[in-house]
Every structure is written in structure tokens, then in C-alpha cells.
Design a protein around this nucleic acid. Sequence first.
RNA 1: GGAGCGGUGGGUGAGUGGCUAAAACCACAUCCUUGCUAAGGAUGCGUAGGGGUAACUCUACCGAGGGUUCGAAUCCCUCCCGCUCCGCCA
Length: 419
Amino acid sequence: MLDPKFILENLEAFETKSKLKGFSFDPITYKKTYEDRLSLLQRVEKLRSQRNDYSFKVSQEKDPTQKKTLISEVQTINQELKSLEVSLRDIEEVFSKILLSVPNLPSDDTPIGKTEADNPIIKTWRSPTQFDFPFLNHIDLIQKWDIVDFQRATSISGSRGYALKTWGFILERAIFSLALDLLRQRNFQILHVPILVKREAMEGTGYLPLGADDAYQFEKDDLWLVGTAEVSLMAFYQNTQFTETDLPLRVCAVTPCFRREAGAHGKDTKGLYRVHQFQKCEQVIICPPHKETSDKLQEEILGNSEALLQALELPYRVVQACTGELGFGQVRKFDIETWMPSRENYGETHSCSAFYDFQARRLKMKFQGEYCYSLNNTLVASPRILIPFLENHQQQDHTLKIPSALKPYLPQEYPSWMK
RNA sequence: GGAGCGGUGGGUGAGUGGCUAAAACCACAUCCUUGCUAAGGAUGCGUAGGGGUAACUCUACCGAGGGUUCGAAUCCCUCCCGCUCCGCCA
């Protein structure tokens, strides 16, 4: 959500820039609804003011006849008010719906484009792994080492199911331990948050109403499974007035994440790339409302993820999301793509977004009378990270080479295929 | 799931139909005092929206939403949240 007045004053920008992001915004409807609402509000407030005056006079009036006249005066006003208040409520409902559906503006430095092909590459760390032997894809590697079961998992969970088996799980857990240590060293608080949340939490972070199709919902209780811990971490601090010493607030969480992947039917159905349930370590920052602060912190959380990938010795590149690739509430986004040999390409593993006050406004987070800014980035998400991890580190003899930074997090005794 | 109690400003907490946006205390801010001195005093201090160049003014808000009433923090209904006891249970 954005400042209604700000939208009114920048109708043209919202029309053109919404289009660039792939959302639609109708300035004429917005302006009309805004103005209708305002004039109705003014009429209602005037009547209420009159009513308050008369009511007070009733309490002062001693003469019963006079009193009766006054009371009937108020009743007349109330009759008029009644229908106006109904209209006001209606138009307010319409207006707030419109307001919730206005996308955030992209930052000025966001490149214009439609698809990921239009995302400029910002930097590349190490070049794609070169194999001088025929390498296997992660699905074959998994089978060889017996660390993931797709078939049985799918039979109990439906499509896109998977189950990590002993060393698959141990590897994943080690990566998350390394990840959390890295963030703790960088002054992040760790929060173990709920992942089953109320509607308000989903709305507050901007995943509802527009993202409803991609989220799992328990209708009976109107509870939702989060698609990212960003929802829980942000909502955790709703209705908060922050002081100088609180900000910037750096928090992270490792949680399961759930995505219906509606609209991705038949896409990436094989392997660990696109699944309904996964594990993610998410970084969230809430900061004072300044563009420069936001930009700086976005660099920081991007750097954290890069540090982890470097520790894991995985080649990656950073791209900036073009306008068409920006989410509804996002102002500026960088994706990290990690080299996935089997795809002969980089694949998205991280998403680093700045929202400015878009989320804080919905969640009512304030700092010195203004709405805070918020940012988030993946630190690592599994099992997707296992694709580059397994594929890039495979050796000619079908063993897996463990990067030295990860070794302290693994048990002393390795299976024969790990080294 | 059953029974009971409760939700008031940054905090504690008073307030059961009309000068109550809401006492008091604490915290906070500015100023004064400096022989009651690790103290004393004065003043200020909620949020959102509307009107006004401004001083200022109007409206709404006492968990949320409805209702009763000329008038609701106060009465009624529904919901949400919390606490206590009981039941069930990992």
C-alpha cells in the first residue's frame, strides 16, 4: 500500500510504471473514487458536527418542550446521515480495494524490460564449472548416492514431492548451520517464527490478495502457510513504533516454505528445482525511511548471500530484475543465479528485494512518525541449492567434493562417495 | 471443546449514558531552581483524516465490527486476542 495522496499527485507515473511492471492501474477510476470519497466524507463530518452540537444542547436544556424540539432536530439529521454513512462505507470499501491493488513504483535505476532476458548482469563470480569428463545431472547423482527419494514422497504428497534421505538431510542441515553462523556473525537475530499465519500477515506483506492462488490456505480457520519466512518475520513486527536504537533491525529465520506453483504446471517437473515444500533461510531488514539507507542495506544482504555461495564455492552471477520481473510491492530487486551444469545455465537461487515503505504501511511500522522501509533476501533455499551443490562439486570418480568451509558442520565420518 | 474473567494513551491504571481524548502516577521533552540536592518546580506530551497562508478548527478512534440511544469507553450482539479452571492431546 502507498500513500493515497502521493498516488493522486502522481497518476501518470503510476499508470505508465505499473504497465512496465506488468500490472494495470486506471488513473481515471482512482481519481474519481478518491474525490467522491472525499466529498462524501466532508458532508458526513459536517452533519456529525451538527449532531454533536445539538446533542450537547440537549444535555444542557432544562425546558422539556425545548428539549423535545432539539431531540427531533437531531433525529432529522440522523435520518440524513444514515443513508450517507452507508454510501460512505461502500465507497470506502471500494477505495481501499483499489488502494490495495496499486503496485509499488520501480526504482529509477531499474532497467525497463519484460522478461528475465532483459535482466542485466551486474557481476559474475567465477566462471561456470568446466568438466573434463561426462558429468551427471543432480537427479542421477541423487540416485547413485541414494540421498533423495522422489517416488515414495510423491505417492504421499502428490506432485513435486521429494524426501531427503540420511546424507541428503545431513548435507542440507550442514548448509543451514553454516548459513546461520554467517548471519549471526553479521549481527542478525535468529527468530523461530510461525509459518501458519493469519490473513493479515499475508496481506501485510503483499502476498494477498493478488497472490492467493500460489498460497496454501486452511479455509476453516482462515490460516495460511507462508511461502517465505519474510511474511512471518515482517508480520512479527506489525504495529510497532521503532526507536533509534532498534534500527536497522536485522532478523533471519529458517523455516519450511510452501508454494502451490499455480501457473507453473508442467514446468521444471523433474528433480529438485521447483517443489511445493522447501526449506529456506531468509534475511529481513527493517530500516529508517531513506532511499540511501535502503540501497546500502540491500547491498549488505546481497553480500551476505554472496559470501555464503563463495563459502560453498559455487559459481554465480548477480542480475538486476527489470521492471517486468518486479513483484507487486517491490521497488528494486537483484537475483542471484547459481551455475547449474545440467541446465547449462544459471538458475535463480536468491531474490533480494527492497520495498521502501510498501510493507511497513500495511503493517503499521513506524519510525519517528514515518513508515519504515523494509528489505529481504534469501540466504539459502533447499533443496534448490542442492542442484548446483551436487552438480558442481561432483568428481570424475562419482564422488562429491565437500568445500572446506562446510566440513566443520558435517560429521567426522563420511560415506565413501563424499570427500 | 466447556466454564469464568479480562482487553483503555509509550507503561501502570481510574473511569458503567452527557463539559472524558479520557483522572492519577511513571516514562519522555523543554525550561526554571541549585542549601530539602543521586532533590524540587513549571510547562508540554496519542493516532488518523478533513478545512485553513496561519493562529486554529472539525471528524473519527478506549481490541475489531455491528446494534440500542438525542447522545456510548460506559448498555446489547458477533468476532478476535489474553488469563484462570476443566476436558482432550503431541
